[in-house]
Structures are given as C-alpha cells and as structure tokens.
Simulated scan of single mutants.
Amino acid sequence: MTRPFAGAMSRRYFLQVTGTGLVTATALGTSGLFGRAEAAPYEKFTWISPRGTLEVLDDYPYWAAKKAGYFGDLDTDMQPGPSDGTATVKFVDVGQADMGFPSPGVFSFALQNGMKLKSVFHMGARDTFSIAFRKGEGMTDLRGLEGKTMLLGSAAWQAITDPMLAAQGVDVSKVKYVEAGWPTWGTALAGGQGDAALSWEGLRAEWIATGLKFDYWLGVQKSKLPANTFVVRAADLEDPDRKAFLEKYLRGWAMGLEFGHQNPRAAVEAVFEQFPAFAKNTGPELGTTSLLQQDNVFRGDMDKREGWGSHDMASWQSFFDLTLKLGQIKEAVKVEDVCTNELIKGANDFDHAKVKADADAYKLSDAFAAIDVENVRAHMFDDAV
C-alpha cells in the first residue's frame, strides 16, 4: 500500500514519524517546513486515516458527499496513512496532513506529547469500540479479561483499550496485550491466538464478509466514552481564512452524513464505486450492515446534539479524567482547551430538505434495491453478548 507523500519525506522526517521517540513539530522547526507558511491558505486539504487504508466503509460520508458535489470547489484529498496507530496525529502535527481522525486515546497521546491539536468535529457520538471473542467465549463482565490476552492491530491501540476496560472496572495491569498486526489481528483471534481482540462498529460487518464470525461486547451499547474525532492544528483556528475553509469542509462531511442517514444503500454504493475490489469482497448486504452500524455511532442521540460533529463536553472531560488516573496522560486536560464546537453551527448550516431530496432521488442498482434496510437494521446486534 502506498504511503502518503512517501517521495517527499526526508530521512529525518521518516524516522521522526515511525521511530519510538517522538520529536514534535516545534523541535523540528516546521513553521516553514514542506513549503507551508504558518498562515497560508490550504493548497490542498489533506485528511489522513488512522487505519492505514481507505478501503473501508468508515469514511462513507466523504465519498457520498464528493459524489453529490457537496464539497463544491474545495480542493480535498484523502490519504490512508501508515498503519502506525499514531500517524494520524503525527502527520497533522508536522504539517504533512491537515486533519486526522484519531481515537480519543490517540488524541490524548498527542496532547501528552506536546502536539498543539484541537478536536473540531466529533464523529463518534457513541463509543464505536468493541471486544471480539471467539464464538461461545464472549463475556458480559469484562473483568473476566484479567489474566487473559487481548490482540491489537497496533501497539498504539492500548491507548484505546485501557480507558474502555478501566471504565468497566477492569484492572488493566492484569491484561496482556499482543500486537498481532494490521490487518491480521482478527484472523489471529479466529486461529486460536489470544482470548479477545479490539474491534469497532462497521468492522464487525467487514469481518463477517471475510469469514470472521465472533461474539462481541459492544461499546456502542455499554460504554459512555467518546469515540474518534476530527482534529486539526489549533493554530489553524486562529487564521480566519483557514477557519472559514474548515467550516465549509466540515459542512461537506455533515451533508454526507445526512445523505447516508437518509439513504444508507446509496452511500454504500458511493464507497463501492471508489473501491471495486473492496465492493466485491464485501457485498451489498454486509456493506449496508457496516454503514448502519456506523450511522448509529455517528448520529448518536441527535435530539440532544447541536448537529453532526457536536462534542459532548462532559463525556470528553470524563475521558480525560480517566486517562489521567490511568497515567496515560501526566497533566490534567480541560476539555474546553482541546475540543471546540465553534464550527458545528456553520457545518450544519445546509439545506437538509435538499439533501434528503437528493438521497430519495438516487437510483439504486438492482443489487442494492433488493436489500431490505429495516431487516438489516433489525439484526445489527445479533452477535452481541
């Protein structure tokens, strides 16, 4: 898989983002690095994945919005990033990308390491993360994981699992983590390695498509922690031109989210058109299942939110307080210093009726038209323990 900007990386920069030690952008003196002036408008706005791949359904709002023209004339780019779990924040910090999509744990890692980042659009209104078990071995009380082994795709994911487990009363010092590699950690669990594995909504359906069938403890049902969010350099919010761009860009995502909520099958088709091999391996029904799982996470309880992307500040503060108690961060974090809803009103300022009309007017292919969305929705949690 091609890594973003690989040809432009100096050896010094490559070591910085992939080595065990972290050198911040300030230490590298990056204010003029890569030809970017501090207050210059974006030449091409680059969003970077936390997964090392874009061939997933997680980013359906972008592809649906791009197909529908909701980004207008904005020059946007999506990059898969390295599979290193912390690359999504490191690349934003040093100016190699403009927006990352970290989990709360990886975001707290960034803050702990001096990265001046800010969360501007909270995608995961509900906790997307789950624990996968081989069939018949699932547990409802996660304290049963003490003394057992959990498989991760990246060692960096411990920053995700420790808070989730601790919030359920688990002594995380008694859980052994094994980095089983991306994208093979699920296969490792199915093959008898470890006792459990980290998973998330959307991936559940994609794993089924590859023959991996597990029982799940679902955070979306049992956890009150926040999930992945969009972060940018805090300094970009202080520049009027960049702030205005960010608001327009996030409006495209919000419109894509609304489109996917109104017509999930059409949004899946937008992803499948982008990635034919992924489409062939997943199929319409499991693709629709994956999107519906994620729509549930992204939407949350919309009646209590300011709109798509709105942060629940109390939930985030609870998360930072928990990570401080765990020693994941060393200094207390005030949520208002690192999360903001200042772009949410503008991001949601679009013609909702038009987006619904666009979604309703979309002509589905025969394969997708045959999918019964309500039946898929009714069986979305059949593998939950």
Rank of each mutant, 00 (worst) to 15 (best):
Q274Y: 15
N281M: 12
L322S: 01
K304L: 08
F320K: 08
E342R: 08
H352D: 14
E331S: 14
L257N: 13
A270P: 05
A234M: 13
D351F: 09
A244E: 07
Q293R: 09
L257Y: 15
L291M: 12
M255Q: 06
G327M: 05
A353C: 08
G252V: 04
R299W: 14
Y249R: 01
A227Q: 02
A235K: 12
E238P: 11
S318R: 15
D349P: 08
A266P: 05
A359E: 00
D239H: 06
E238Y: 11
L286N: 09
K248G: 03
G309W: 03
G283N: 09
Q294A: 05
D301S: 03
T229I: 05
R299N: 13
D239S: 11
D321P: 04
P240Q: 03
A279V: 10
N348T: 05
T229L: 09
E273N: 14
K325R: 12
S315D: 15
G300V: 06
N341Y: 10
A353V: 11
D239M: 03
D241W: 10
L324R: 15
A266H: 02
G287N: 00
M313L: 13
E269H: 05
D349H: 12
H352N: 14
F245T: 03
L286M: 02
F319E: 02
A267N: 09
L225I: 09
G309F: 03
W308G: 01
Q262H: 12
T229W: 02
E238S: 11
V338Q: 07
G309V: 01
V232H: 10
A332G: 01
V271A: 08
V335C: 00
L343P: 00
E238R: 09
W253A: 12
G307Q: 03
N228F: 14
R305W: 13
Q294E: 09
W316N: 00
D241F: 11
L322W: 01
M302Y: 01
E342Q: 11
A277G: 07
K356T: 12
K243P: 07
E258C: 06
F230A: 08
R233T: 05
Q262S: 14
D337R: 06
Q274N: 15
L225A: 09
P240N: 09
E269Y: 08
P264G: 02
K248A: 06
H261G: 11
N341Q: 06
T340C: 06
D349A: 15
L250Y: 02
A244K: 08
S318F: 12
T229G: 06
T282D: 13
F245Y: 10
G287Y: 00
M255K: 05
E273D: 14
E238G: 09
L250P: 01
V355N: 03
